[in-house]
């Protein structure tokens, strides 16, 4: 049974035809992909991270990132991702520096990194929960499902059990617990070629199941759509699902979700300091450029950046399908 490849409609033309504004808003978030090194190698990972990847932001890049925060008070949020950002040698220095400047710091924390030794140095990472609590960072942690089957299928055998142990340690230091102010958000994403369920319904399921079965607490759940790029795209193609999946995303285009996509008020920075509109554009190497030269954290002029259109492609239908998808969950 063969399927004819179906061309996705042009994303920008779709926005225009539905009268959706994709201009930049005031920049609030500096998201940095600190390193592609990770203790895991997940099926859905759009970064293709693994214990074998070594790319990481240089000491000059770390210093410049802190300088940008200092010079631009409007950058309220430092959002650290990877790979596992905690595995970067200057992770703690960067977090402490940003917190000392009074910024919110979000860490995209995969939970298991606490329990595995550092893949390169073999140093124990078990002090992370206490560090996170002391710095009052906001944790956003992937837990693809509240049961073992889907979680281990996506992230590897044993990941569910380790994730629960890590969540227990985070609860112990106050994350996800009432009245501590230590925010713990879990992230759901589908294990395969389908769209996420309703975020609020799923959050209620996660809360009741994790509490009843494991005595665990968290604050919020984000439901994120899998982006058809890199490792997940390869898996879709291998199964003959790529065209169907893209068509599902296109058919579910939601103009309300589209008007609130994350690229309107954030920039994404790679390990070389290069600037992109989002983490997905970063992986596709769709860099932001000004008159032909790539913008980096070393040469960026934020006033000028505001005038440069956001780069889009067919993958953007992943952020605008259904209730929308972003690093902050649905966007409706």
């Amino acid at each position: 049974m063969s399927t004819l490849p179906l061309a996705a409609p042009d994303f920008r033309a779709t926005l225009e035809s539905r009268d959706v504004d994709l201009s930049r808003r005031t920049l609030r978030t500096l998201q940095i992909n600190l390193t592609k090194l990770c203790n895991q190698a997940c099926l859905h990972c759009h970064v293709d991270s693994s214990p074998k990847r070594t790319e990481h932001l240089s000491p000059e890049g770390v210093e410049r990132s802190l300088e940008l925060l200092k010079l631009n008070p409007g950058l309220e949020i430092l959002d650290l991702t990877g790979g596992a950002p905690e595995l970067h040698a200057q992770f703690r220095e960067l977090v402490e520096g940003a917190r000392a400047l009074g910024r919110r710091v979000i860490v995209r924390h995969n939970l298991t990194v606490t329990l595995d030794p550092h893949p390169v140095t073999q140093v124990s990472m078990e002090g992370l929960p206490e560090f996170f609590a002391a710095q009052e960072v906001e944790l956003v942690s992937s837990l693809p499902f509240y049961e073992q089957y889907f979680t281990d299928k996506q992230r590897g055998r044993g990941v569910f059990g380790k994730s629960l142990e890590s969540l227990r340690r985070l609860n112990e230091v106050g994350f996800g617990m009432p009245d501590t102010g230590l925010e713990l958000t879990l992230v759901y994403n589908p294990v395969g070629a389908y769209l996420p369920p309703d975020q609020a319904t799923l959050e209620a399921d996660y809360r009741s199941k994790l509490r009843a079965a494991h005595g665990l607490e968290f604050n919020n759940l984000f439901a994120i759509t899998n982006m058809p790029i890199n490792r997940f795209a390869d898996d879709l193609r291998r199964r003959g699902n790529y065209d169907d999946y893209l068509q599902r995303l296109v058919a579910a285009f939601n103009p309300v979700a589209a008007s609130n996509v994350m690229c309107r008020d954030m920039i994404s920075v790679d390990h070389r300091g290069q600037i992109y509109d989002c983490d997905f554009n970063q992986m596709l190497e769709l860099e932001v450029s000004d008159a032909g030269s790539a913008l980096t954290i070393f040469n960026v002029d934020f006033a000028r950046l505001a005038e440069i259109p956001i780069q889009v492609g067919s993958h953007c239908f992943g952020c605008t399908a259904g209730s929308g998808s972003s690093c902050g969950g649905t966007t409706e």
Partner: peptide, 12 residues
């Protein structure tokens, strides 16, 4: 099958 997954049902 897709509809159940997108409604949050489990394989069980």
């Amino acid at each position: 099958t897709t509809g159940c997954l997108e409604a949050g049902a489990t394989p069980d």
